[in-house]
C-alpha cells in the first residue's frame, strides 16, 4: 500500500468522524415528542382509505399568517388536497396572499365544501441558560424547546354556511442532546413496543395520523350535515349516494 493510499484512507476516516460529529450535533440528536392537547386524540370513525367524498368538489384553503408563511401554507394545502383526493374528492387548493384569495367562488362550479385551515402558535418556551449549558457539555445536558400550536379548521358550504369547525391543538417538545436521544433510543430498542416509540419520525407519524384522521372526520361530518340541512336533496353535480343507517322511529 502506497503512502498516498494510506493518507487517503486517513482522510476518509477523518471525514467520517466529522460527519458523525456533525450528525450528532444536528439532526439525530434532536428528539421530538408530540402530545395531543385537545381534539387530536379523539378517535375517528371514518376510514380515510375509503372513498368518503366520491364525486364531491372540495376547496382547501390554507391561510398564511404569522405562524405559517405562504410557501409553507401552499405545501400544507397540497398535502391536505392529496388526503381528500385519496378519498375520491375533486380538490382545488387556495392560498390567499395579501388577504386576497386566488380562487373566486362566484366563478365556475361552486365547491360542495370549503375547508379553511389556519395555524396559531399558542405558546413557545425555551431556556437560554440551558442552551448554553448544553453547548458547554457537548449536549450531554440536553436543552429543549416547547411549542403549543393550534390548527383551526372550519368547513363551510359554498354559500358560506358553517357546517363544522374545530381547533386541533398539539404540543411538541424538541429535546436537543445526544444524551436524551440515546436514552430514548435504547428504550425504544429494548423496552417500548413499536407504537410507543419516540425517536425517529414517530412524532411526525403520530401527528400526521391524528391530524389527517380528524380532518377527514370533520369533513365527513360536514358532508352529512350539509345533506341533512338540504333535506337530502341531491347535490347539483354529485351523483354520490351516502350510506345511510341508524334506527328509524
Amino acid at each position: 500500500m502506497t503512502r498516498r493510499a494510506v493518507k487517503f484512507g486517513r482522510r476518509v476516516r477523518d471525514a467520517g468522524w466529522v460527519l458523525l460529529c456533525g450528525a450528532l450535533l444536528s439532526g439525530c440528536v434532536t428528539t421530538t415528542v408530540y402530545q395531543p392537547l385537545s381534539a387530536l386524540q379523539r378517535p375517528a370513525i371514518v376510514d380515510p382509505q375509503l372513498a368518503n367524498f366520491e364525486g364531491m368538489r372540495l376547496l382547501v384553503r390554507c391561510v398564511p399568517g404569522d405562524y405559517i408563511e405562504a410557501s409553507d401554507a401552499d405545501l400544507l394545502c397540497r398535502k391536505v388536497g392529496s388526503l381528500f383526493r385519496n378519498q375520491g374528492a375533486r380538490v382545488e387548493t387556495d392560498v390567499p396572499r395579501n388577504g386576497r384569495s386566488s380562487r373566486n367562488l362566484q366563478e365556475g362550479t361552486p365547491p360542495d365544501l370549503v375547508v379553511n385551515l389556519s395555524s396559531r402558535l399558542l405558546h413557545k418556551e425555551s431556556s437560554g441558560p440551558l442552551w448554553a449549558l448544553t453547548v458547554l457539555t457537548l449536549t450531554i445536558v440536553p436543552a429543549y424547546t416547547e411549542y403549543s400550536v393550534a390548527q383551526d379548521v372550519t368547513i363551510r358550504d359554498s354559500s358560506g354556511f358553517l357546517l363544522a369547525s374545530d381547533s386541533l391543538k398539539a404540543r411538541f417538545i424538541e429535546y436537543f442532546g445526544a444524551g436524551v436521544w440515546g436514552v430514548n433510543w435504547v428504550l425504544d430498542a429494548v423496552v417500548r413496543p413499536p407504537e410507543e416509540e419516540i425517536t425517529g419520525d414517530a412524532a411526525a407519524k403520530d401527528f400526521s395520523r391524528d391530524f389527517y384522521a380528524q380532518l377527514s372526520q370533520l369533513a365527513f361530518n360536514a358532508r352529512v350535515r350539509a345533506d341533512v340541512l338540504r333535506s337530502f336533496e341531491p347535490r347539483p353535480q354529485s351523483g354520490s349516494n351516502p350510506r345511510q343507517t341508524g334506527a328509524v322511529p
Partner: peptide
C-alpha cells in the same frame, strides 16, 4: 425556522400510518 406543526404535518399522507392502529 419552519413551524413545528407544519414540519410535522408534511411528514406523510400515506395510508400506512392508519394501518398501524389496531
Amino acid at each position: 425556522m419552519r413551524p413545528a406543526l407544519l414540519a410535522l404535518t408534511l411528514a406523510l399522507v400515506s395510508s400506512s400510518s392508519w394501518a398501524e392502529v389496531a
